[in-house]
Simulated assay, not measured.
Amino acid sequence: MKPPAPAALSPLVVLPLAVMALVAAVDLAAGPGVGFLPMVSLGPAFASLVGGWRRTALVGVLALALCLVLGVYDGLFTERRGFTAMASVVGVTVAGLAGAVMRQRREIEFAGVRSIAEVAQRVLLRPVPGVAGHLRAAVSYTSAVAEARIGGDLYEVVATPAAVRVIIGDVQGKGLEAVETAAVVLGAFREAAYDEADLAAVGARVARTADRALRGEKFVTALLAELSPENGAAFLNYGHPPPLLMREGGVVHFPEPAQYALPLGLGLHGTDGPRPFRVDFGPGDQLLLHTDGVTEARDRAGAFYPLGERADLLKDPNPDAALEALRQDLMRHVPGPLHDDAAMLLLRYRQ
């Protein structure tokens, strides 16, 4: 596995040669008495920042040759200054070679860890089906870490003969530890969604698994849903943000339970689990399940993202395009990268 190559037009790529050319021009213009010659060593120093050890060695050889030519031109080898300048070029080149080798090793190690993490994420968060029973589905996941594709949010859509069962959750923490926790919860849900008769039994089974697996203050907020043409939508809320429900006519509200329950993993504290609650869900309706990385995203003034006010962005006939429009609007709302992962799962009643 090779580390990523620097962009061909990057200024850092040509910087070592440009610096050496500038030093040579200044040295020729100033004459032998000024002492710019040791600055030729900046060439291999900059080369080690962006190139591999071969490029650093090549620039070092060019710098040494340039130093030799300028030293002869300036008549510096009749005294120590010429040899001192060449020694500085050799020393910086050797240090640059060591730095380039260490940087390349770190890049290879990072690429390997990232590759493993991405594979784990793909296995963990499988693509949701575009069509699940009587629903159309689309998903969006934006990590809070720049260029990262792994985080602490989870989701799944399972179409069973009785209904479509869905989970979305937010694991406390980030990285591979969060992925391990998410794998426990998703594994339990995927089995229970097929095996259990109703949503309450699914939730109880997932909760038992989480309570056994999680230690200390680790927890997962989660929202479980069961949707069928006959019974609408039923929810179990384990301390998770309520979903956005948009009716066919554009009316928006956020279904909430009468009383919130503790997140998954905290059931051993002896509190009761959540009680299922049901809402109507029919043709033309759509449901947006999301994590708090969406609703808690702030703009420069500190205002939260107004999800309810932006629900009209979901009117695009294509659910993937609608969800992408909402994601882009979310990213424009924040002044920089998100502070938390943002997962969104859009479900539409298929007419």
Rank of each mutant, 00 (worst) to 15 (best):
P32A: 04
P257W: 11
L314D: 01
G60A: 05
E147L: 14
G187W: 04
A234Q: 13
M331H: 10
G60C: 01
F83Q: 11
L22F: 10
P44T: 04
R136L: 13
A65K: 01
L346F: 07
P11F: 13
P32F: 04
R106E: 08
L223C: 13
P306Y: 03
L135E: 09
R106L: 13
A47L: 11
T271N: 09
F277S: 02
A120P: 14
G133K: 02
R54M: 07
L262S: 12
A8V: 11
M246L: 15
A117F: 07
P38E: 09
G216V: 01
R54D: 00
P16Y: 09
G35A: 03
A111L: 14
E109P: 01
P3A: 15
A47F: 13
H134M: 05
V26P: 02
L68R: 05
F110W: 07
F235G: 03
L68E: 12
T291V: 07
P16L: 01
L76M: 12
R126N: 00
Y305Q: 01
G284L: 11
R149P: 00
G308S: 08
G267V: 08
R105F: 00
Y305K: 06
L338G: 06
R149Q: 14
A200Q: 12
Y73F: 12
A5W: 10
A5V: 12
A63V: 05
P255R: 10
R190Q: 14
F304S: 03
M39E: 00
E248W: 08
D198R: 07
L268E: 14
T78Y: 10
